[in-house]
Amino acid sequence: MTSRSQSQPRRGGDRAFDIANTIFVVLVTILIGYPLVFIAAASISDPQAVDSGRVWLWPVDVTLDGYRRVFAESSIWRGYANTILYTVVGVVVHLLITLPCAYALSRKELVGRKGITWYILFTMLFSGGLIPTYLVVKSLGMLDTIWAIVIPGATGAWSILVARAFFKQSVPDELTEAARMDGANDIQIFFRMALPLAAPIIATLGLFHGVGLWNEYFKALIYLSSPDKYPLQLILREILIISQDASQGSDAGSASSNADQIRLAGLIKYAVMIVASVPLLIIYPFLQRFFTKGVLIGSVKE
């Protein structure tokens, strides 16, 4: 049976809102998507065409020299392996710390949970700084190890508070009380009831933290000294710096050789951006549905 709201024609104000909303979404999509399209086109275009402004959406004078130069480095593949390892281990550690902490804070029976929450919130506003953090990492013997990348920042106030709000909404007190009446303890409730419902928040927190670890280079720059442990971002940074130095060197040789170095540096600049971004662009669509589900949880009362 057709409802009354569906049978009535849409008002002019509603249609105007739909049009304005569509225009706004299209503009935001263009603003977000165009830089990526431009970088992809510039990475396979002649640098002179890019510098002269001839590249807008489509590549001009297509060449793959930049990608050949980037992937010719054996360190690229080692950097990929290191970054994948750091990201996977870091996300696992992040979830192992964040989810139990957030679930415990979401339960009313936890003694002192408000004080603990405020203490965690305090760390969101103030931190020890770089030097104290470095001294702690050094004193724990984590320098030049994977743990120097994974442990500092393994969790954060924002992640804990978001997961806490999710558990409060998805696992109400009435549900846990019914489980306790059936003989379940807190650990059983967490693993058998809370975690199966937490797929959206697990995917969200895992992706956010994983993106941060994937793009991380500052911690590696500070804590790592062995080149065989460098993540991808740090290796790409070194390749870009070396190519730029080679193109600007005064002892580059002939004018044609110097021009080739400048051209190659321009190609590498955009190629490294694509090499670093493609894996995340591939993974994100598979997790998008969890974001949608997470946003809608609690918005409609059944």
Score class of each variant (00 low, 15 high):
S7L: 14
V162I: 15
G156D: 11
L121A: 13
L221D: 10
S226H: 06
L236N: 01
E174F: 12
A81C: 10
V150S: 02
W158R: 09
R164S: 02
S250L: 11
A49R: 08
K108S: 15
L140M: 08
D251M: 12
G206C: 11
F167K: 00
G129N: 05
T63D: 09
K138H: 07
A203V: 08
T145I: 03
S74R: 15
T29I: 10
H94R: 08
A184M: 04
M124H: 04
A49N: 09
T176G: 08
A42Y: 01
N215V: 04
A265L: 09
S5T: 15
L264Y: 05
K269F: 06
V272A: 06
S243Q: 10
S225C: 11
D18R: 11
K229T: 00
M273Q: 12
G249Y: 09
A42Q: 01
K219A: 08
A16K: 10
V272H: 05
T155E: 03
G141Y: 07
P231H: 12
D14G: 05
V278T: 13
G156H: 10
T63K: 14
T87P: 00
D186T: 09
L57E: 10
D144Q: 07
I274N: 01
A163W: 01
V89G: 01
K301A: 03
I116E: 03
T98A: 02
L175C: 07
E174W: 10
I189H: 09
F126S: 06
P132R: 12
Y86N: 07
L287G: 03
R192W: 14
K229V: 01
I297R: 09
F286D: 04
V111I: 08
V50G: 02
V25G: 03
L110G: 02
L267S: 04
G206Q: 06
D51G: 10
G128F: 05
I242G: 05
A163I: 01
L99P: 02
R11T: 14
Y270W: 11
I201C: 06
L99N: 04
I160P: 00
E302K: 14
D65Q: 13
D186V: 07
N258A: 15
E302D: 10
A102K: 00
D228C: 10
G129D: 05
Y119C: 13
T63G: 12
G206H: 06
D144P: 00
L205R: 03
A102D: 00
Y270G: 02
N185L: 11
D251W: 07
S254V: 06
F167C: 01
W118I: 11
S243T: 07
G53Q: 05
A102H: 00
P132I: 14
W147Y: 13
L143F: 10
L121T: 13
S250I: 13
W147F: 13
G249V: 11
G53H: 07
L296D: 12
A271E: 00
I241G: 03
G183P: 13
F71C: 06
L287I: 09
K293T: 03
D260S: 10
L207E: 03
I160D: 01
G266V: 06
P285H: 05
